[in-house]
Every structure is written in C-alpha cells, then in structure tokens.
C-alpha cells in the first residue's frame, strides 16, 4: 500500500526531530531518494504542507498573517503584532506581513484559523448590510 502524504510528513518530522544540521541533510537526502523510488515526487507539495502543520503543532507555533492596505510604519506594526501575540494564548507566532490594496484601509490579522477583520472593505460591507435591513 502506498503511504499517504500525511504519513510521509509524520515520518519526516519524527526522523529530523532533535538532530543536527548535518544529520538532517543526510536524512533529507535519503528521504528524497525514497520519494523518487516510490514515484511520489508529485506529492511533495502536499507533504511539505502537512510537514509544516505538524512542525508548528509540535513546537507550539501559530502562523500569523498581518494584511494591510499599505506599508505600515514600525510603530503601527509593533502594536498590531502585540495584539496578535496577546491573542495567540502563549504560543509562539510566526508572522508574515502582506500588503493587499483591495482592503482599501485598515488591517486583517489571521492567527491559525482565526481571523480578525478590521479592514475598510469589511466595514463598508457591514454598513451596507445594516442599511439594507
């Protein structure tokens, strides 16, 4: 039976946990050979996404995205980051900052699978709905 991408990811995670960089690169060599032998290279993307999920879960890391309408100055960014850390409930967070002009203004914070939407786009939509009713 073929192993699923999830099983590959789990195995990979367990074999590279708590090993040095040199050892890890050796393991990765072997892992890629196994993938090629088993004709599973096409599954690599899925395996990596599962791997990153498992890694984050085991190491208590939350992925966070801060999406803003334009580039923010440092102070604003820090206060938004603070908000995200508060909400993360003691977990470490791995923050990415993205600029998306479609938001028109404000910001959106994504934390794991939670979303805090304070964008102008969302506010306009909500006002539109309130006036319609």
């Amino acid at each position: 039976m073929k192993a699923t991408p999830k099983q590959y990811a789990q195995t990979l995670f367990e074999s590279v946990r708590n090993v040095s960089k040199e050892e890890a690169s050796k393991i990765l060599d072997n892992f890629s050979k196994v993938l090629v032998e088993n004709n599973q290279v096409s599954q690599l993307e899925k395996i990596l996404s599962y791997f990153s999920n498992i890694w984050n879960k085991e190491n208590n890391i939350l992925e966070a995205e801060i999406i803003t309408a334009r580039e923010l100055n440092a102070d604003d960014l820090i206060s938004i980051k603070k908000f995200a850390i508060e909400r993360a409930g003691g977990k470490e967070i791995d923050i990415k900052v993205i600029v998306d002009k479609q938001l028109k203004g404000g910001f959106v914070v994504r934390l794991g699978d939670e979303i805090f939407d304070s964008s102008l786009k969302n506010r306009i939509a909500s006002l539109k709905q309130a006036l319609n009713n």
Partner: peptide
C-alpha cells in the same frame, strides 16, 4: 443617525 449608530466591532471569526 443610522450611519453614526452603526458600530463596527472586530469580531473573531474562524476561517478555512
């Protein structure tokens, strides 16, 4: 009045 009464709160939502 309606527009000024309309309060926007940042709600926590779960997404997928």
């Amino acid at each position: 009045q309606k527009i000024s009464d309309h309060k926007i709160e940042i709600k926590k939502q779960t997404f997928g």
